[in-house]
């Protein structure tokens, strides 16, 4: 001892743009994150609908007509799939973010998740009945 140990730590660089390709769980994470782009776009579609509603019956009819195209169908289909993925990925982590303790024990996570799925079904049903 006494002699200075030579240190030369080696740092492995990580790509800032392609790091998520390394592991399937990172890909799943990115799939969850990009749902926001679709939700953003769809919310602006709703804002356009609201604008046409404010402009009167003719403008609203024009909005409905502009929706009726293969692109309108394709866009809505894509948003449907993506937002459903957002909902599933959101509810499934709720017990981690908001655990519920009753007495000593924590409520099992799957009960919390299933309660959310149930509430989701009820809310969706109400919206569909109201909206149609």
């Amino acid at each position: 001892m006494g002699e200075e140990m030579s240190r030369k730590p080696y740092v492995r660089e990580i790509s800032k743009t392609t790091w998520f390709l390394r592991q399937p769980r990172y890909m799943r994470y990115m799939a969850r994150e990009v749902t926001c782009i679709f939700i953003f776009a769809y919310t602006f579609l709703l804002i356009c609908a609201l604008g046409s509603l404010a402009d009167g019956p003719d403008a609203f009819q024009e909005f409905l007509n502009s929706l009726r195209s293969p692109w309108g169908v394709l866009f809505n289909l894509a948003v449907l799939v993506v937002t459903a993925y957002h909902s599933l990925s959101w509810f499934v982590v709720t017990p981690q973010a908001m655990p519920i303790q009753r007495g000593e024990e924590f409520v099992p996570g799957n009960i919390i998740v299933n309660a959310h799925y149930g509430a989701w079904a009820v809310v969706s049903l109400i919206i569909l009945i109201w909206g149609m």
């Binding site: 769980r25 994470y29 981690q96 973010a97 908001m98 655990p99």
Partner: peptide, 26 residues
Amino acid sequence: CSFVGACSEVCPKHVDPAGALQQIKV
């Protein structure tokens, strides 16, 4: 933290750090 959740998946003692971090955020 952006809640990737990988920490909790690999934790050998099932600590669930990701859950703890979300609770701290709340």
